[in-house]
């Protein structure tokens, strides 16, 4: 039994509210800083995924480290067109990832089908047809910076996790808006 599970078991029986939140915060902070990525690079976007992890953009500084094995990873980065023929393989790889896991859909192809939406008989129109996507990154291909921004966005989702079953630290996000009456 993993340590994490034992902690949550112990806390569940007692009045653990405050301690649980702090433990959650610690674990989620640690998780968020080292989101290892499974690069599911299928097409053009994979080139930008490689560029993002190499010297100039340097994914490692965010703790994101591409591992070619799904069993080592926390987040699946779907980079590239998914065809009907590829779909079962992607699904299977996703199922091989240990929980908790997240999915980043990189590029218009995995967001909606993108340029391959019309007139094609073999492309899956958006990865959310068969996978629970957490972060969408638009672009064809998105710049490496956008992908890194996606990981920063993903940390906010990670912060909602809790080790207690069924519990989440929901956060409300407010987008910056122009002030009423201010200069538009």
């Amino acid at each position: 039994m993993a340590l994490v599970d034992r902690i949550s078991g112990a806390l569940d029986s007692g009045p653990g509210g405050v301690i649980l939140t702090s433990v959650d915060a610690l674990i989620n902070w640690a998780r968020g800083q080292s989101l290892w990525a499974f690069p599911m690079g299928t097409a053009c976007c994979a080139m930008e995924l490689i560029a993002a992890s190499f010297s100039k953009f340097d994914f490692d500084r965010m703790g994101t480290f591409p591992r070619p094995d799904p069993r080592h990873t926390d987040v699946m980065i779907l980079a590239g067109t998914i065809t009907e023929k590829m779909r079962p393989a992607v699904r299977r790889l996703y199922e091989q990832m240990p929980d908790p896991k997240w999915v980043v859909a990189m590029g218009n192809c995995t967001v909606s089908g993108g340029i391959f939406y019309y007139d094609t008989y073999s492309v899956v129109r958006g990865a959310d047809e068969f996978l629970p996507v957490d972060v969408y990154v638009a672009g064809c291909p998105p710049r490496p910076e956008s992908l890194q921004d996606a990981i920063i966005q993903l940390r906010r989702l990670v912060a909602e996790e809790s080790i207690a079953p069924g519990r989440r630290h929901e956060q409300t996000t407010t987008l910056p808006r122009p002030k009423a009456g201010g200069d538009r």
């Binding site: 009907e84 023929k85 939406y117 019309y118 007139d119 094609t120 008989y121 073999s122």
Partner: peptide
């Protein structure tokens, strides 16, 4: 194409419900 694919898509009369014009 996958082995279980039906039809030959580059024929002009090919039609498929998945194909959005």
């Amino acid at each position: 194409l996958p082995d279980d694919f039906v039809g030959h898509p580059l024929r002009k009369d090919y039609d498929d419900p998945r194909l959005i014009r």
